[in-house]
Nucleic acid binder design. Structure first.
Lengths: 356, 356
DNA sequence: TGCCGTGGGTAACGCGCGTTACTTGCGTTA
DNA sequence: TAACGCAAGTAACGCGCGTTACCCACGGCA
């Protein structure tokens, strides 16, 4: 018998298509037997001998199972879908990576659909319907929604048809389970670190005070101070626009407002971009970091935090972990297990570098 | 007729599965008719009347086509696969975004598989076989390989089975078509910009001199100088380690080596991270940017370039464009069109900000 | 009247595979 | 010798859909 010639029909090209049937013929058994061997059936009554013959045939022909056909027959696709704003995302990619890796471990495939079409409006715009629809057409077993910053979102109705988990965002009007960073604990650990370094007057460069990140982080800061018997001086909390320039301006204001002896000795910047600007403000005034002023950030944007000089001590947003946990939660959900909590908080670890 | 109530079958759960058959029954026609209407067949002999009835049935039942079944029957999946090193990738994400958007426009789905398993070795390690294999099992119509930095790679054998395009890398041993940045033109435009600003003595902070990025950018710089009747002084080209610290060190060396009147008035840093370090070296010496020393970078890493103070003028690596072009090339390939060139160069635009 | 389009559909096959029900040969036991 | 059980496999159905071949009524035309 010829070895690698795939049975071509007449003259036509018939590009590819080694099927289970081909394997079966090559091994001289039925297709069913091949199926049994390939899916490692427990109670398969297949002799060791034929099992080997079949495996050899698979090798010889270079057979590759057709995932689509398998999905159709078995009624399970092994796919999860994730809808995400990949454009504007400096770090949505980390969520995807975490999810991707976990899915890979679970032998699931992750279908990624972009949700950044033109119709996004307002801070709470709905996640993209078209993306969801496409994903459902692929018969994904579960759906993940990932936001680029912690906030409430509305998900499309059709989502109800399949287990769904939200990552880095929460369901503004329903009860979908979600995975979000523990902002409060993060703010707390940041300020605790500063307190531990001996700082007593701590300036805070705030974000838009209405977003979950600002609310949580500030509350954490307050708690840490309270535990040390201190209060958060409202005067020391200055609003910032969430960019380097915003941080620069805010830092200037806070540094210039007081005589040296009243000046805060540490700055808690609610994100790394603002910390980056604060660095400039501090250096311009001939002050050193962390000698004169300690700085601590939030978010751990690698490209910034790891490359600033001195490197920035900051609190990390656990994107990868949230992604992985999202997939795990989805797995539990699709397996029919009860969900642990409808909102899982993931810790934000302190990353010590050199700015405190 | 009630509007949104989806007619549940008897009492059973019947989790999912409105099929074309259900639609056909509901509309009182054959399944074939439904198929014809849904796929908008040209020469379909379907009266306007029944077409409408069918569409109404689709609406009423909330029918959603099963992409897998369709793929099986039609022998085309509408999927492309992309394997990429998503972990280590500060900007692989931009390639994906470009590819994703283009695929979405072409009504293709992009399957993303990670290639960052443990067995990566050396600078030219092969792209992940497992990822490729998985993708082929999904019967993708084409394959994309994306690298995080411009280099030669080896792709798995099995890739031969399906049209393949390389993005931001090239086939080290075959003739697969590839899409890469035009490093030379980029280096040229950077130096031209400095020349135009009146600089005559230009320092260059180099990368590892053996990688395509360094080779191309340096050659471009040389060309630009030659055109202005100048030569690239080898002494002014200092090697750097591709980080902020590396840039800092290199900049210190170059700045401290000459008396003020011989000192270069501009620095061409072959990447933005090194530019970031160079900024610090310059500022430490009490010099201003761009007043005393102009700085130009390469890569346009947003998080750095847009947030440095002053904002960094740099040359952008066209990741998104490369991603989109990769998908377009793949589309041409799968359509059987001849490929334009086996290596397509994509321009690197100059981004003017404030450091020159 | 017979014949031939033509519009408006439908029956039925196959895509590649999972799965269930069934068959067959053979050694064992009563 | 018949009855039985079990190992080793196979035939055949169905998953949801694209597609090809076919069918049927009806009108026009010679």
């Amino acid at each position: 018998m010829a070895k690698t010639t795939t049975p071509n029909h007449s003259g036509a090209a018939r590009q590819r298509g080694v099927t289970m049937n081909d394997v079966a013929k090559h091994a001289g058994v039925s297709r069913t037997a091949v199926s049994f061997v390939l899916s490692n059936r427990e109670n398969a009554s297949i002799s060791e001998e034929t099992r080997i013959r079949i495996n050899e045939a698979v090798q010889a022909l270079g057979y590759r199972p057709n995932a689509g056909a398998r999905a159709l027959a078995s009624q399970r696709s092994d796919w999860y879908g994730i809808v995400t704003e990949i454009v504007t995302a400096p770090f949505a990619v980390d969520i995807i990576k975490g999810a991707q890796d976990q899915a890979w471990l679970d032998r699931k495939f992750l279908l990624i659909a972009p949700s950044d079409q033109a119709d996004a409006v307002g801070p709470n715009q709905g996640m993209e319907d078209a993306a969801t629809e496409k994903l459902l057409e692929q018969r994904v077993e579960g759906l993940l929604y990932a936001a680029t910053f912690h906030r409430g979102v509305h998900v499309p109705e059709s989502t109800k048809e399949v287990p769904t988990v939200l990552i880095n965002c929460f369901d503004a009007d329903g009860k979908l389970p979600s995975i979000v960073p523990d902002e409060r604990a993060g703010g707390r650990v940041a300020v605790e670190r500063l307190l531990q370094a001996g700082h007593r007057r701590i300036g805070v460069i705030n974000l838009d005070p209405d977003i979950p990140a600002a609310i949580g982080r500030l509350e954490g800061a307050r708690e840490a101070l309270a535990e040390a018997g201190l209060e958060l001086d409202p005067e020391l909390v200055v609003p910032g626009y969430a960019t380097a320039d915003g941080g620069y301006d805010a830092a200037c204001r806070i540094l210039d407002r007081y005589p040296q002896e009243d000046r805060p000795t540490a700055l808690f910047c609610l994100n790394d971009r603002m910390a980056m600007g604060a660095y400039d403000a501090i250096k311009e005034r001939g002050l050193t970091i962390p000698g004169d002023i300690a700085v601590i950030g939030f978010d751990n944007q690698e490209l910034i935090a790891a490359y600033l000089r001195p490197k920035l001590t900051t609190v990390a947003l656990p994107f990868e972990k949230m992604g992985a946990l999202g997939v795990q939660t989805l797995a539990a959900l699709t397996a029919g297990q009860p969900i642990i909590a409808d909102q899982q908080l993931v810790g934000c670890p302190l990353l010590e570098r050199s700015s405190v």
